[in-house]
Design a protein around this nucleic acid. Structure first.
Length: 285
DNA sequence: ATTAATGTTCAGAA
DNA sequence: TTTCTGAACATTAA
């Protein structure tokens, strides 16, 4: 679930107890059901990071990234259910990693908690993260996109616009939930080929990508029905209350009164309003 | 009690 | 080269 707003909230939440601190210990949690993916391996990460200082914590796409003073990079990818916490976790059973940090006499503990265990923690050598992840796996950050960049991306493919929004190699940060919300705000049908968007729709897309993601950050993300997502203090986000279409099948569109529908695209649930997100609308005048 | 579905990513196949 | 499929896992709803 964690998409750009949720990961940004995690980064901001742990920053006060991570940035500028020294790593005292990194340990596996004995209660964890199964180990998660740690690359190259926990012993190697411990050896490389213990005693080192964390220069900064930043969000890169949907990853929480620790930039170490010695130029190493630790990238934590929450995937479906991972959380970074600086307080008591939702439960003890799904704690995966514990980071003990210090600044002078001040000590802090940061947890990586992950219910499904699909998250990953990877250590990168100097320059490696920039080259392999930023350079090869991720496109421009969604908050840094421009209308002309959207124009180029959309013109280059006939894939449905919603599928394009989810392609991290093209645009980094947008996930399944916000893709539906953004397209509803921009009044674009999720299934239209990206190449068929009108100039006006490109401008609307550009505008709402930013405004929806920024608002969702202000609301500290979306905590869905199962309550999995929490901020760094184990509190729910509140952007779910602002959702217009996501998981609202059968409810009435607040813009046009249409009944929200769901369909499957690229094996993912898509939500939209058939009343104001119409295929071919761009051809009318 | 099985089966389907859930927010993400990517290796491998088409 | 680009795009699609299935698998990784735990939990809940049907």
């Amino acid at each position: 679930m964690p998409e750009l707003p949720e990961v940004e909230t995690m980064v901001r939440g742990i920053d006060p107890v991570v940035r500028g601190r020294q790593v005292v210990a990194i340990s596996e949690c004995p209660t964890a059901c199964k180990p998660l993916t740690v690359v190259p391996g926990l012993p190697e990460i411990q050896k490389a990071l213990v005693g080192q200082t964390i220069r900064a914590v930043v969000r890169i796409g949907k990853r929480v990234v620790w930039q170490m003073a010695n130029e190493l990079t630790l990238a934590i990818e929450p995937r479906m259910t991972g959380l970074m916490l600086r307080s008591d976790p939702p439960d003890e059973a799904h704690l995966r990693l514990r980071f003990d940090l210090k600044l002078g006499k001040a000590r802090s503990i940061v947890w990586f908690w992950d219910r499904r265990g699909l998250g990953t923690v990877k250590l990168y050598q100097p320059g490696e993260f920039e080259q392999t992840v930023i350079g090869q796996l991720l496109g421009t950050d969604a908050l840094s996109m421009t209308a002309s960049h959207w124009q180029k991306l959309c013109a280059a493919t006939d894939r449905p616009i919603k599928v394009l929004l989810l392609d991290q190699k093209r645009v980094a940060g947008i996930g399944n939930l916000y893709a539906s919300e953004i397209l509803h705000a921009a009044q674009i049908h999720p299934a239209v080929p990206a190449s068929s968007l009108t100039p006006k729709q490109i401008l609307e897309l550009d505008r709402f990508v930013r405004s929806i993601l920024q608002t969702a950050i202000e609301y500290e993300g979306s905590t869905l029905g199962d309550g999995t997502y929490r901020n760094a203090l184990n509190q729910s986000g509140s952007y779910q209350n602002a959702h217009q279409v996501y998981a609202r099948v059968g409810e009435l569109c607040q813009r046009c009164g249409g009944s929200i529908e769901r369909f499957v695209q690229a094996q993912r649930a898509t939500f939209f309003c058939p009343g104001c997100q119409v295929i071919g609308k761009q051809r009318k005048r």
